[in-house]
Design a protein around this nucleic acid. Structure first.
Length: 689
DNA sequence: AGAACCATAAACAAGT
DNA sequence: TACTTGTTTATGGTTC
C-alpha cells in the first residue's frame, strides 16, 4: 500500500504496483507535445471538429516535428511575442478541445444514464417477477449478497477511479499552469456550463440512480480531495463535494479492490500516464492523440462510449467488435448499479471541478499575461483567428499596421518559413528599425542583409525586444558570453567593471533580477574563462574589455546548417524545466543560422532580416541599443574608438528610462520595478480586458 | 563515444 | 570579518 502525494497535493494511493509515472515534468512535456500535435495536426484525419478551428498555426510551426523540442529552446528561439502568439493559438486549440471534451463527457454521462435507466426499469420488472416466483427470503438474501460484493468492488474501484480522475485533472492543470490552456471565465465557462450543467446532471443522476445509492460510493465520489484546486475558490460546488474524505479511508477501500479491477484501472491509468513518459498520446484522452470527438463516435450510429473497437467507459476498455456487441457489453457490464452511478458521480464532480479549476487558472493566466505584458493585441478571445501564413497582407504589412500603442507582435528566428501574425518584430522600439521592417518581413530575398553592420543577432534581438526582456521574466536566448560582450561593447568606452556588467544584466533583463548569486557567478566564470574577455587594470580598479579577435575565434556551435535541429528547436513550446544552458547557445547560433537565405526563403521575422550570417553575434560592433536602455538609436560604439581608459561611474540612466508597457505601447511608461512583483502591481488590470 | 560548448555550482585566493 | 572580485575545477546537459 503506497500512499503518496503528488506535486499538486492531491493525495492518492495505490497498491504496491502503483505506476509512478505521472511525474509532472513528463506530463508537461507530453502536454506540450500534444498541443503541438494539435496545432500542427489540424488537418489530420479524424479531427473533424478541431479542423474547423479558426485558429491556425503558421506553416512554419505546423511543419515542425514536436517530438524533439525542448520548451526552453522554444522560448529562446521564438521571440517573446512570437511565443505569445503561438501560445495563444495553442491555447485556443486546447480550449476548444477541452470544451469538446467536456461536452463529450456530458454526452456520455447522459446517454449512459438514460441507457441504464431503461435497463433499470427492465431489471426491476424482472426482479419483481423473480421475487414473486421464488421464495422471498432466498431471493432477497442473494440479492443482498451480490449487492455487497458489488459494493466492495465498487468502493475500491471508485477510489481508483477517483485517483485516475485526479491524474486526468492534473494533466489539465499542468497545461493550465503552463499557460497552454486558456481559461476565460466569460466565454469559456459559459460554454462549459452550457455543455455541462452540474445541477441538471445531479438531478438526472438522482432520477436514474435513486434506487441503489451506495453510501460509501457517494462518500467516495464526493470525497475527492479537492483542496488543491478548490481550496480558495468560491466554488458553486455542492457542499457535499467539498467534504474531504480522509486518506485512510481511501487506502482502506483500496485493499478491497479486486485484482481484476485494479489491473484494468492500471491499464486505464496507463493510457494517461503513457503520455507522460513521452508517448505521442494525449493524456486527456483515453486513446490516440486525437480528442474523443474526432473518433469513430462522431460517425452516425456510433456511441460516445465506443471507439477504437473498445468500450470507453472509464476503466473498462473492453474490446467490442461491433456496436451490437458493445451495446451488450454496456448493458451487462455498465448497468445501472452502485458502481456505475458512483462513476457517474465521480465523473460529474471531476467535470465540475475542472470547471472550477478552469476559472481559477484562467484568472491566473490572465494575471500572468498582464504581468508579462502579453495581452493579445486585440480585444479578442484566444480563439480569434490569427493571421494566416498565407496572408498576403502580412507581406505588405508595414509598421503602421501596428499603430503606436499597440504591442507589436515581434517576429523571431523561430519563424523562418512563414510569417506569424506579427508584423514588425519590434515590441517597443517600433521606431528603431522601421526602415527595415517595411520590407524585411517580406519574402526572403528582400531581407535587409548586413546593411547595418551593427545588427547582430543578439543586438537586433535585444534592440527589438529590449522592453520585453526588461519586464518579462524570460531568459534571453543568448549565452552569457554574448551578453557580456554585448554589454561591454554597448558601453561608451567599451569597457565595464564587473559591477557594471552586473547592472547591465539586471537592467536589461528581468530574468536576471533574481537568482543573482547564480548568474553573477556565471558572469564571473565567463569573464575568467573566455579569452575574449580581457581584464584591464585601471586607476579605479579593473575593467573588462572584449577582444573581438578572440571572441570570433570561438568555435561556433555545430548546429550550423542543420535544418533538422532548427526545426526541432522551432517546434518547441513551453517553459519547461529543460536544460536551459545549451539552449541559449543553440538559439543564439540559430539566430544567425536562420539568417541564411537558403533557410529563410520567406523570411518572416524582421529580426532575422538583420542578422548576420556569422555563427554568433559576431559583429565587432554593437547595434543601436543605447546604453541608457532606451533602445533608441544612438551613436555606434565604433564611434567611440578611443582607447580604453578609466571608466566613469556606472551610469544609472537606465533607472530613469521607463520601460514601455508592451501593452500600452511606447507612449506609456512605467517605473522600472526592482522586483517583478512591483511590476505586476503596477500593471493596469484593464490591459487584459 | 568523444569532442566541443554551455550553464551551474563550488572552492579558493586576493583585495577592499 | 564580511564582501567583492577573480580563478579554477567539477559536473551535467546538449549537439554534432
Amino acid at each position: 500500500m503506497v500512499a503518496s502525494k503528488n506535486s499538486f497535493g492531491l493525495a492518492f494511493s495505490f497498491n504496491d504496483s502503483t505506476p509512478e509515472r505521472t511525474e509532472s515534468g513528463e506530463a508537461l512535456q507530453a502536454a506540450r507535445q500534444f498541443l503541438l500535435q494539435q496545432a500542427s495536426g489540424l488537418n489530420s484525419p479524424g479531427s473533424n471538429e478541431v479542423k474547423q478551428s479558426p485558429v491556425q498555426v503558421p506553416v512554419s510551426m505546423a511543419m515542425m516535428s514536436p517530438q524533439m523540442i525542448t520548451p526552453q529552446q522554444m522560448q529562446q528561439i521564438l521571440s517573446p511575442p512570437q511565443l505569445q502568439a503561438l501560445l495563444q493559438q495553442q491555447q485556443a486549440l486546447m480550449l476548444q478541445q477541452l470544451q469538446e471534451y467536456y461536452k463529450k463527457q456530458q454526452e456520455q454521462l447522459h446517454l449512459q444514464l438514460l441507457t441504464q435507466q431503461q435497463q433499470q426499469q427492465q431489471q426491476q420488472q424482472q426482479q419483481q417477477h423473480t421475487a414473486a416466483a421464488a421464495a422471498g427470503w432466498e431471493a432477497s438474501g442473494k440479492r443482498g449478497e451480490l449487492h455487497q460484493q458489488l459494493g466492495s468492488k465498487q468502493l475500491a474501484f471508485q477510489q481508483q477511479l477517483i485517483q485516475m480522475q485526479q491524474l486526468q485533472q492534473q494533466h489539465i492543470l499542468n497545461l493550465q499552469r503552463q499557460g497552454l490552456v486558456p481559461l476565460q471565465p466569460t466565454a469559456t465557462m459559459q460554454s462549459l456550463q452550457q455543455a455541462m450543467c452540474p445541477s441538471d446532471l445531479q438531478q438526472l443522476w438522482k432520477e436514474v440512480s435513486g434506487v441503489q445509492s451506495s453510501e460509501e460510493a457517494l462518500k467516495q465520489a464526493e470525497g475527492l480531495d479537492l483542496s488543491t484546486n478548490g481550496s480558495n475558490s468560491t466554488s458553486a460546488f455542492p457542499k457535499a463535494a467539498s467534504a474531504h474524505i480522509p486518506l485512510h479511508s481511501l487506502v482502506n477501500g483500496q485493499s478491497h479492490t479486486p485484482k481484476r479491477d485494479r489491473a484494468r484501472l492500471f491499464e486505464w491509468i496507463s493510457s494517461f500516464t503513457k503520455a507522460d513518459s513521452g508517448d505521442d498520446h494525449v493524456p486527456l484522452y483515453s486513446k490516440g492523440s486525437q480528442p474523443p470527438s474526432s473518433h469513430h463516435e462522431e460517425h452516425a450510429g456510433s456511441h460516445p462510449l465506443y471507439g477504437h473497437g473498445e468500450c470507453k467507459w472509464p476503466g473498462c476498455e473492453a474490446l467490442c467488435e461491433d456496436m451490437g456487441q458493445f451495446i451488450k457489453h454496456l448493458n451487462n457490464e455498465h448497468a445501472l448499479d452502485d458502481r456505475s452511478t458512483a462513476q457517474c458521480r465521480v465523473q460529474m464532480q471531476v467535470v465540475q471541478q475542472l470547471e472550477i479549476q478552469l476559472a481559477k487558472e484562467s484568472e491566473r493566466l490572465q494575471a500572468m499575461m498582464a504581468h508579462l505584458h502579453m495581452r493579445p493585441s486585440e480585444p479578442k478571445p484566444f480563439n480569434q483567428p490569427l493571421n494566416l501564413a498565407s496572408s498576403g497582407s502580412l507581406l505588405k504589412r508595414d509598421s503602421d499596421a501596428y499603430p503606436e500603442g499597440l504591442p507589436h507582435p515581434p517576429t523571431s528566428a523561430a519563424t523562418p518559413i512563414t510569417p506569424l501574425r506579427q508584423g514588425p518584430s519590434v515590441i517597443s522600439s517600433s521606431s528603431l528599425h522601421t526602415h527595415s521592417h517595411s520590407h524585411s518581413h517580406g519574402v526572403g530575398p528582400i531581407r535587409r542583409r548586413n546593411s547595418d553592420k551593427y545588427c547582430t543577432p543578439i543586438a537586433s534581438e535585444l534592440a527589438q525586444n529590449c522592453e520585453f526582456y526588461k519586464n518579462a521574466d524570460v531568459r534571453p536566448p543568448f549565452t552569457y558570453a554574448s551578453l557580456i560582450r554585448h554589454a561591454i561593447l554597448e558601453s561608451p568606452d567599451r569597457q565595464l567593471t564587473l559591477n557594471e556588467i552586473y547592472n547591465w544584466f539586471t537592467r536589461k533583463f528581468a530574468y536576471f533580477r533574481r537568482n543573482t548569486a547564480t548568474w553573477k557567478n556565471a558572469v564571473r566564470h565567463n569573464l575568467s574563462l573566455h579569452k575574449c574577455f580581457v581584464r584591464v587594470e585601471n586607476v579605479k580598479g579593473a575593467v573588462w574589455t572584449v577582444d573581438e579577435v578572440e571572441y570570433q575565434k570561438r568555435r561556433p556551435p555545430k548546429m550550423t546548417g542543420s535544418p533538422t535541429l532548427v526545426k526541432n528547436m522551432i517546434s518547441g513550446l513551453g517553459f519547461g524545466s529543460l536544460n536551459a544552458s545549451y539552449q541559449a547557445a543553440l538559439a543564439e547560433s540559430s539566430l544567425s543560422l536562420l539568417n541564411s537565405p537558403s533557410l529563410l526563403s520567406p523570411p518572416s521575422a524582421a529580426s532575422l532580416n538583420m542578422l548576420h550570417v556569422g555563427h554568433d553575434d559576431v559583429s565587432s560592433t554593437v547595434e543601436q541599443v543605447n546604453s541608457n536602455g532606451s533602445c533608441s538609436p544612438t551613436l555606434s560604439p565604433q564611434q567611440y574608438s578611443h582607447q580604453v581608459h578609466v571608466k566613469e561611474e556606472p551610469t544609472e540612466l537606465e533607472e530613469d528610462s521607463r520601460p514601455v508597457s508592451l501593452l500600452a505601447g511606447v507612449t506609456h511608461s512605467l517605473p522600472l520595478p526592482s522586483d517583478e512583483r512591483d511590476l505586476e502591481e503596477d500593471l493596469p488590470t484593464e490591459e487584459l480586458e
